[in-house]
Design a binder for these strands. Sequence first.
DNA 1: GTCCAGGGATTCA
DNA 2: TGAATCCATGGA
Length: 282
Amino acid sequence: MRSFERSFKVEEYDLAATLSSGQAFRWKPRGESWEGVIHGRWIALTQRIDGIDARVAKAVEEWDWLIQYLQLDCDISTVIQTFPKDPHLGEAVSTCKGLRLLRQEPWECLASFILSSTKQIVQIQQIVELLCARYGEPIASAAGSAAFAFPTAAGLAALSEQELRDCKMGFRAPYLARTARMVQNEVNLDAISKLELERAREELMKFPGVGRKIADCVLLFAYGFQQAFPVDVWVLKALRQLYFPRRKPTPGRLLRFTQNYFGPNAGYAQQYLFHYMRTKRS
DNA sequence: GTCCAGGGATTCA
DNA sequence: TGAATCCATGGA
């Protein structure tokens, strides 16, 4: 049965926190809803007390793609149970109750995070929006909001460096251009999901502009490797303040700590710490 | 280890 | 309101 709308029942899911927590960059609040694009489909999501309502512009046969993207089958309480019991993480988890990890498309995630380096989230959103509006396929959407798919790797590979720079991405332009060509020609992004964590990370780090941090973002947000633990400026600040208040740990020591201490769902713990640090006080 | 590469949002005086 | 700071970094 084709349908335009569907309600999903889910507990402990904070849509606003999840969609604005710097893991995806295309979600916009509009009235009561959040509008975005998943797998080339425009969609509006609305938070309800007992779940989430979804509305698309073109009727669909099934909604598995959305369940997968939002990770609606994830039992968050089971994840949180695996966290170490410490007051800092506990505070982050209770402050950011309902924060979830998404499961995004690898190419969009990879390209977006190449653009993320030393940019603030607002600016990344602007760059990505410009890129999509100029070079993404127009798609059906609700009246009053034009929508575009995320540009394909082939589409971006065909652009000049200057055309990319004109989307305000600065020195990241050649990285994105070369990565787009690699994805178009030789690298199969789907194959990476079948690899072990370390092998998958190695493969991602072969792309220009992708180091450990960005690789870990893609591993966590697109491929679902829940042990991946991206360390950015905010998380570094959190780790130093909360876990190493006196001494200044070496990068190696810090890396080992993040890999051992937070357990099998370290990536989730990371997301709570990140969002907690970014949103507290203000 | 150091330095550099956009530029705009945010903070601060 | 103008200046300074900062940013989901990586590469040379």
